[in-house]
Amino acid sequence: MPGSLPKSTLYQAEVVVLRYMSLGEADRLLVLYSKDFGKIRASARGTRKTTSRIAGHLEPLTHSSLLLARGSSLDIVSQAQTLKSFNQIRDDLGRIANGLYIAEIVDLFTEDEEPNAILFQLLLDTLDMLSRVDVELLHLIIHRFEIQMLGLMGYRPQLDTCAVNGESLPQNVPLSFSVVWGGVLCESCASRDGTARKISSRGVMILKILQRGKMEVVEEIDMTKEARTALSGLLRWYIQTILEREVQSGAFLDSLQ
């Protein structure tokens, strides 16, 4: 029964652990993204103790099946079982940084208890790809996630035609990208948004490939270091402008590039 949380005292949830904070003496407050109930917060008692039998199933970026008990303020994790631990992410600093970045974006974009099964699947698929792909492809996996997530949250950027006048976008001319208009602007409309950023027509083409998301095509994208930095900066700026706040883990991710 997707939607609001069940009224019964115990309920099952398939989740990805996004983050946790210390709570009280030896507990943790978990932020979870669940398949059926969206983002939920729950306390996990005694999980800071090394004797905890559930702590290992509740680390960030773990796909777990939980049994939760309804609490008066916070729900409480009573059982936890790892479905997938994504060990290859855990063993590599760059993959961890990428994983935490998408976990933070999911946390920042979602409200508590608003389910979105497609987003849950996108998160799982992306973690799976982060654990498998060649290091060289990690940045594309992240950008694919960013643009698809934006679409699911109602911010799908318009890339096929000018977001102001709907004209088709010519090749090999300077274009711009506008948060206000939610997409690419042709040269004559660029002045309609003073905050718009420059983007090349090749940059727009790459965004389109990422938006469609077909991995066979995404894998073939070949970019210079400058183009990579530009794309990553553009998407980060788009996301942070919509969120009206900084994505904290972006700084560490960038420092590893």
Partner: peptide, 15 residues
């Protein structure tokens, strides 16, 4: 012997 997930400060001396 140290399970993943726990905080070091709670580990007993033997472990």
């Amino acid at each position: 012997g140290l399970p993943s997930g726990g905080d070091l400060e709670y580990a007993d001396e033997v472990t």
